[in-house]
Nucleic acid binder design. Structure first.
Lengths: 345, 345
DNA sequence: ATGAAAGCGCTAACAG
DNA sequence: CTGTTAGCGCTTTCAT
């Protein structure tokens, strides 16, 4: 007989699964057990201790589903990861994963659990409403706007406890936390140009709104300084990226002398392909990345990049969400990017 | 008036929040609404369509908490990440995050949601029982045994739907999926020795059971071949690791000519420190890693490493868990490691 | 300080 | 094919 069982008066083995079971053994009412286990100060200390002892002895845990149903609160924050374009990779993308790690730390500290949901909007129009309306989460953090900006806007009008990681647009209605991508793009271009670059290639997918903003910033600076700039569409999935970049390099060799990669992941792959072609960085070709992932300081040569403060981002997401949960209609939070100068530009 | 509202006979605005509300509008019973929305074939097509139309019009979603409580199923798999030693890093460790990404993909495909819980066993004795007994998850995947092997064993005796990522010990009772770490360690040492190494240093924390197994495998081979091997304790947190490794390198310079890093993360940092000291890899010092993360092919020079098949691991975890959910007491799954020869050894 | 009772919103067995 | 009914296990008035 396991120690989570007990016998009733007829001698049958009975498992303690509910408050009522426990109440019967303790000789009190279910209400009292509920109060005792919740640490309600109204219960007699003796009674509470007795109840706690029995609960421990039988390994009893109140059913959270029932509790949540009754209290209309779940203690769970939903994390939605929309996989708009580039469906394969997104969720194992280093940047998103790092952000998720920090979110988990922050939310756990505040006593919330995380419910992770990977959504493919193209296959499920209703993804966001479903997640929110399910009654399974108290609030939602959306990681990345992908190509769902409009849908998020619509939902935001009727649902307060939602915060989104992504790009900030003038006049948008949903609460967003993110880096000033446009400014980041400017910093990157300025650095390249200051290093003597005369023609820039942007490696990335400008369909993604954040990347588009990074490019726009770079373009603004380049045009002002009379430097040419072009987009070389590049995906994030690591299998295809290598080849894609190799092809781009072949195409631009000798013409372009500066590369602005939309993410460090792209930059790192790019650096490797460049090495294989025997091109010297930074002498012949200068490279700037975006993100400042942990790997970026470990490349050869170490990568010059635009840093996003991921920890601050996670903290911001959680703080704003908690304030919204409390009924506060918070403003968006746009974080400043920082140029980290290493050796590639 | 938002389109999710309607008016009752007295003209007051009424939001449709429950099956009963919807039933009243549709002029049927709640039971019928429940069946219709569940796609139960017993309902008249006309009735179903009408109910679906009303539901859509009012943006109605059944409350999952209530549904789950009633059905005693949650559709959620709990993912527990015990942070035993090295509390800071684990959840943003590249390997675990990549595994988590694959798990999310697999589970989503099978129709499950993921509930992520970061646990610090030292602060919470009861972490696993709490997670399981909470009634919030149908089953649990534990990512990493950390120093919790015994506790996991105890729980496994009374709880079937649990699968653990980690190391397999002869005769253990919990169902585990993982790489054959010992064999992996052997492969690494064999490679180093075949490359001419005469003295090996293992960089890693042998308190972690998986790392201990990797070291044990390497040691076995080294001793058989008459090669000396030592452990240089190294943490995973990126801030401290750099310095720690730099110190180790200073200490062993000229004595040790082969490094076996417990993880690629350590290996990558190590490579960087080596480069900064002006030591030539692989001529003066050979390095083998473990994991084969995406970065590992991008380092300079590209890292020779022991590959863990993360995708297969995630698939295995999910398959076994689903079988256990169906009542099957499955065996553990030990995956073979593969030596990936690049340029560091 | 405790008990009794009324649900939270949904589903499923049973009865038509 | 549909309505009725009885809970799932817990929390929280309202009494006492």
């Amino acid at each position: 007989m396991a120690d989570t069982d007990s016998k009733d008066r007829a001698g049958r083995v009975t498992k303690v699964r509910t408050l009522a079971d426990l109440a019967k053994i303790a000789g009190v009412s279910p209400g009292t057990v509920s109060r005792a286990l919740a640490g309600n100060s109204l219960v007699n200390t003796k009674t509470r201790e007795k109840i706690e002892a029995i609960a421990r002895e039988h390994g009893f845990r109140p059913n959270q589903m029932a509790s949540k149903l009754r209290r209309q609160k779940t203690g769970v924050i939903g994390i939605a990861i929309p996989l708009g374009h580039d469906v394969r990779q997104k969720i194992s993308d280093a940047f998103f994963m790092t952000l998720l790690g920090h979110l988990a730390a922050e939310l756990t500290e505040k006593g919330y659990d995380l419910m992770l949901r990977r959504v493919i909007p193209a296959q499920d129009e209703d993804w966001l409403d479903r997640f929110i309306g399910s009654g399974m989460v108290d609030g939602v953090i959306v990681i990345g706007q992908s190509d769902q900006f409009e849908r998020i806007e619509e939902v935001a009008d009727g649902y307060l406890p939602m915060v989104v990681w992504g790009n900030h647009q003038e006049g948008q209605r949903h609460c967003v936390v993110g880096t000033n991508n446009r400014l980041g793009g400017k910093l990157a271009a300025e650095r390249l140009i200051a290093s003597g670059v005369k023609e820039i290639a942007f490696l990335g997918d400008t369909q993604a709104i954040e990347f588009a903003a990074r490019f726009a910033g770079a373009k603004e600076v380049a045009e002002k300084m009379g430097v040419r700039i072009r987009v070389l569409p590049t995906h994030l999935s690591p299998e295809r990226t290598g080849e894609e970049i190799a092809e781009h390099l072949r195409e631009i060799e000798g013409k372009v002398d500066g590369i602005f990669a939309a993410t460090d992941t792209i930059a790192v792959t790019c650096l490797k392909e460049i090495r294989e072609r025997g091109i010297d960085v930074p002498r012949q070709l200068k490279v700037v990345g975006f993100d400042d992932l942990p790997i970026s300081s470990q490349t050869a040569p170490p990568l010059t990049t635009v840093r996003q403060d991921i920890a601050a981002g996670a903290k911001g997401l959680v703080d704003l969400l908690l304030r919204r949960l409390a009924g506060d209609d918070t403003e968006s939070l746009v974080l400043p990017p920082h140029l980290i100068i290493r050796e590639t530009a």
